[in-house]
């Protein structure tokens, strides 16, 4: 796997870059409010939105860093996503070609005190975008953690029967 130059966050003339990629800071409440607008369709829509973002994120970084194993690929994604302000993503368990269990500590949706439901949908979408890249076809489920501010996400490979 290639090494990444530790440039971190850089800002100049209104351009902010994270590891040389342009980024922008937005309040996470836009996801909650979008969820409220979408109403009953919020779950699939926010997951779809997250999935596209998650997929593009891992595609970009896989190309830069060329990980060789599923663990390396997962760690890259979790590191990147943990710098994004949603909370701290930790790899709990990985079963090659089967499932990845991820714990989100200090889920920003729960910390803010409002309903975390829509942010959870969006984050499961992000992880689903990663899961599809890693497993080709994957499904993400959310499990409530016993710890108040944490959430557990399970990425499971979908077996395609022919």
């Amino acid at each position: 796997m290639k090494d990444l130059k530790m440039k971190g966050l850089e800002a100049k003339d209104g351009i902010v870059k994270l590891f040389e990629e342009r980024i922008v800071f937005v309040p996470p409440t836009i996801i909650t409010l979008l969820g409220q607008i979408y109403g009953e369709g919020a779950n699939p829509l926010l997951k779809y939105l997250g999935k596209k973002m998650g997929r593009r994120l891992i595609e970009t970084w896989e190309e830069h860093l060329r990980p060789k194993t599923l663990i390396q690929l997962t760690e890259i994604f979790l590191d990147m996503i943990s710098t994004s302000g949603w909370g701290n993503f930790k790899l709990e368990k990985i079963i090659e070609d089967e499932e990845i269990i991820i714990k989100l500590e200090n889920n920003v949706g729960k910390v803010s005190g409002g309903p975390s439901l829509y942010i959870d949908y969006f984050i499961s979408g992000l992880l689903s975008g990663f899961g599809e890249f890693a497993f080709y076809n994957a499904q993400v489920s959310i499990e409530e953690s016993s710890e108040e501010l944490n959430s557990i996400f399970i990425i499971k490979k979908r077996k395609i029967e022919i």
Partner: peptide
């Protein structure tokens, strides 16, 4: 905690890419 705030406030922020905003 892997959280980002507007300085001296409790205003949470997250990182997105410009193209993510188009996709909203």
């Amino acid at each position: 905690r892997s959280h980002i705030f507007l300085k001296d406030t409790n205003f949470s922020l997250v990182i997105m890419r410009p193209y993510d905003l188009v996709q909203l």
